[in-house]
Design a protein around this nucleic acid. Structure first.
Lengths: 209, 209
DNA sequence: ACCTGAACACCGTTCAAGT
DNA sequence: ACCTGAACACCGTTCAAGT
């Protein structure tokens, strides 16, 4: 019982709110039925009455969070840039909900999540002159690239110090005597910059001749 | 006790073998200390003597599997094609060890895993004339694209039927009156083909002018 | 050096019983 | 309609005790 507003009956929304809070504060691992019950000040079993079971609780939670995501507005003069801007906006959305990505991924709901972005991409790809199957490929390629990139990014952030450690692995000798390359690979990675670079390259390749 | 060769003492290798088997046959979720003990015909606690705890057991398992991956040989006439071939080989490796990807991802070891591929990429990117930071970006962009793509692919496979379902979502109206596009987006996705398309586009964009 | 069972603190879920 | 505690079948891990 964490002294919020008092209520006569527990309801589905309360459960979802508390669950969202738990995840936001202590990560998805902290979302257990028992901790949730403690948070709500009820018996564990009450929760089951409202949300079925843990599985569907997570489903509902993900569903709600996805629904709350803002829409995506393309910006930029050329179709190229507008597609890139959609990709960046999508990445930003995902990064703003760090736990969401993991949960969606775990639940295999990646597809369903990205309709708004997909619509925006369809529009821009069309504007670039692509049609039919070719347009569909472009949309999907960008989409997968963004989601994949965010997944890998998040993974990299969570990862503790790597042993052997890239700084030891990449020296001028192992990098074919390209000292600058060795330094770059050994040094830290700027995900934002790399993302922009790769999306630009991908879009150029997809929309180009 | 699954009547393999008899042995006097349990050892670390036996434990890892059994663990790998469990994962291969029933997925990572089936790898519990207790099931593992049952499989080995020992007390649960014996395992702890050999591998420390579950955490380090998983670490060791991932480590071993990664070490067993074959090396990557580029093929193709132009640097473009050779980079694409490395990407495809890497994807193939990852797909051949379906559980590995998830485990590596969960453990945040994605970096460490891809050294061989990274070396191959460095070589090809160099051959294409890129140097220094620009080369590093290209290598990392391709690498992240492959890993990300495989993660999303696996996710998509695991995902059951999607509700609403893309076939209902994408009609000619919602697809800006492009019926072929609607059909393509509603239809099934060919991951192999899409992967090739996107990698080609990405590489063209990265190595191109 | 290696193995053991008992015990602890956690899980999710079911169910019969309460109001 | 909503809530409850008891109970079940699982977890990972520690520890003292065995050989």
């Amino acid at each position: 019982m964490k002294g919020k507003e008092t209520r006569t009956h527990l309801n589905r929304e309360d459960v979802l709110d508390a669950a969202a809070n738990l995840v936001k504060q202590h990560g998805p691992g902290a979302l257990t039925m028992r901790k949730l019950a403690a948070e709500l000040g009820t018996a564990v079993t009450s929760i089951y009455w409202h949300v079925g079971n843990r599985e569907s609780l997570l489903d509902a939670l993900v569903e709600r969070t996805v629904a709350d995501l803002g829409e995506i507005r393309p910006s930029g003069a050329t179709p190229d840039r507008r597609v890139v801007s959609v990709a960046r906006a999508l990445r930003r959305q995902l990064r703003d909900h760090p736990h969401l990505v993991a949960m969606v991924h775990e639940r295999g709901l990646t597809e369903r999540m990205f309709l708004p972005a997909q619509r925006a991409l369809v529009h821009e790809v069309h504007a670039a002159g692509l049609r039919g199957a070719r347009a569909a490929d472009a949309v999907r390629a960008v989409q997968i690239h963004v989601v994949g990139h965010v997944l890998v990014e998040r993974n990299r952030e969570r990862a503790p110090v790597q042993r052997p450690g890239e700084d030891e692995l990449w020296t001028a000798e192992t990098a074919e005597r390209d000292a600058a390359l060795a330094r770059a690979l050994a040094g830290p990675l700027d995900p934002e910059a790399l993302f922009t670079t790769s999306v630009r390259a991908l879009v150029a390749g997809l929309l180009g001749p």
